[in-house]
């Protein structure tokens, strides 16, 4: 039997961590773009557009991410596409991330005082101009801490893509365990790597939130 040193295990896990990071970035950026579209739908003046976005968000927040991954994986196959795991993983995570970011950002936009809308309307601005020049610049400040906080959920969400066969940190953990028979060490290390990725984001989210609150109090 081959002996595996801790370094052997760690090296393989760290190599796989690259894919966790890439998938997280893709999901977060893609989810951000779709989430922005959702945000605009959610605060649209048309009722059916608002309802559409609302049901989308309910659907994605009310079902397990794992099921969304399965459906993306097997559902895309129905269209005769040969679905690689990374495509299903990326698509499902983008749509899932968008649902949460859209809802977080709606809360931030609604936190802006109504007078701001009225004032900008009285200056003859259109809806898009209001958003672009008045609402979003203010909402973005409030949105930063929860958005950074949610990025932690995205990183943790990528762990589920191992189940449909995307090789990232969790999958590598399973593979390495099967080779070394040291689940305690391997999963312990996997957990520590995830912690090293997520904890700085969690902490900065907290710090940002505190800073923002202080800034508010001085107004």
């Amino acid at each position: 039997m081959i002996e595996f040193t801790i370094w052997d295990i760690l090296r393989n896990l760290l190599l796989a961590t690259r894919w966790t990071i890439v998938l997280s970035l893709v999901s977060f950026l893609g989810g951000g773009i779709v989430g922005l579209v959702l945000l605009f739908l959610r605060i649209s003046k048309r009722k059916w557009l608002r309802a559409l976005a609302k049901y989308y968000i309910e659907l994605f927040q009310g079902t397990p991410l794992l099921m969304q991954l399965f459906i993306a994986f097997f559902g895309l196959g129905l269209f005769g596409i040969d679905v690689p795991a990374w495509l299903a993983a990326g698509l499902a995570l983008i749509l899932w991330t968008a649902a949460f970011l859209g809802e977080i950002w709606r809360g931030c936009v609604e936190a802006i005082a109504k007078g701001q809308w009225e004032a900008s309307a009285s200056l003859g601005m259109g809806r898009l101009q209001q958003m672009r020049y008045v609402i979003l610049p203010q909402a973005m400040r409030i949105a930063v801490p929860p958005t950074v906080g949610f990025s932690v959920q995205v990183i943790k969400g990528t762990a589920l893509t191992s189940i449909i066969g995307f090789v990232e940190l969790s999958k590598a953990g399973t593979v390495v365990t099967n080779a070394t028979f040291q689940p305690f060490t391997v999963y312990g290390l996997v957990a520590l790597i995830y912690f090293a990725l997520c904890w700085p984001l969690s902490k900065s989210s907290q710090i940002l939130e505190r800073k923002l609150n202080v800034a508010h109090r001085n107004h």
């Binding site: 762990a159 312990g188 957990a191």
Partner: peptide
């Protein structure tokens, strides 16, 4: 700060 899946496996 760690995924539920990994906690479960651990």
């Amino acid at each position: 700060n760690t995924p539920f899946l990994i906690q479960l496996f651990f």
